[in-house]
């Protein structure tokens, strides 16, 4: 299988004032194309830090990260931005959407940055919004959408760029159970049908139940890395 994400001996040290904090202590990880991976663990275990480093949003103190074979340490800030644009989709816990753009424009924005033509942009954005169940809400701005609908738009936007991998950081943290379940089913469905690789940082057991590969982080290190069979995964709703 093609390796999409690869990191070796990844370390990240922060300073809180003058006190060093080791958020990652030598993480080795390979994620293959089509994987649906959860990163779980207690608060402070390094989930979000790992996700930020994998997405090129933060630099590691030591070690290397490769996305689709490209070593992030060799890239400038601008090149990293281009890599994120072309290869990585993000879904964050909150503040996911650009508030002055409609749902459709939020999805189109990425395509516009990629230089996709207007007609194709519109068509793809509408198709993706339909895929995430938001037909008829294309012209609504984020403030006119519920939290779950906003996250769905974020997923549609993350997929719009046809990324190699989607990184989601606590995507269900602000959602009620039903909405969270619906979003997870959507992500699982997209993973299975389109073969899109998902890495989801979460401590929500409902999310973990939908993933095929379950990684548990403790104190900045991989404590468990388990693959489960289809039977052990939660069924799509």
């Amino acid at each position: 299988m093609e390796v999409i994400v690869e990191c070796r001996n990844l370390k990240k040290r922060y300073f809180q004032g003058s006190v060093p904090v080791d958020a990652l202590r030598g993480v080795d990880l390979q994620v293959e194309k089509g994987d649906f991976v959860s990163l779980s663990g207690p608060s402070g275990s390094g989930k979000s830090t790992l996700l930020n480093v994998l997405g090129g949003l933060d630099n590691p103190s030591e070690g290397s990260v490769k996305i689709a074979g490209q070593d992030l340490s060799q890239l400038s800030k601008g090149d990293l931005a281009d890599l994120r644009l072309q290869r990585i989709g993000f879904v964050f816990q909150a503040y996911n959407l650009i508030p002055v753009l409609s749902a459709e424009e939020n999805v189109e924005f990425i395509l516009q940055l990629q230089g996709v033509g207007a007609a194709e942009r519109r068509q793809r954005a509408r198709m993706l919004l339909a895929q995430v169940g938001l037909t008829g809400m294309e012209s609504r701005r984020p403030a006119q959408l519920s939290g779950g609908q906003q996250q769905r738009v974020a997923v549609a936007r993350a997929l719009a760029a046809k990324p190699s991998v989607v990184l989601a950081d606590e995507p269900t943290a602000n959602l009620d159970s039903a909405t969270a379940e619906s979003l997870l089913s959507l992500m699982a469905e997209l993973n299975q049908e389109s073969g899109i690789t998902f890495i989801v940082a979460t401590h929500d057991p409902r999310v973990i139940a939908h993933t095929r590969r379950r990684i548990v982080l403790t104190d900045g290190q991989i404590d468990q890395d388990v693959r489960v069979s289809e039977d052990e995964m939660a069924p799509a709703v």
């Binding site: 800030k77 601008g78 931005a81 650009i98 760029a161």
Partner: peptide
């Protein structure tokens, strides 16, 4: 935060 989001989406600084 929004500027962070824009950069995460692929906008250069």
């Amino acid at each position: 935060r929004e500027f962070g989001l824009l950069q995460a989406l692929g906008l250069r600084p």
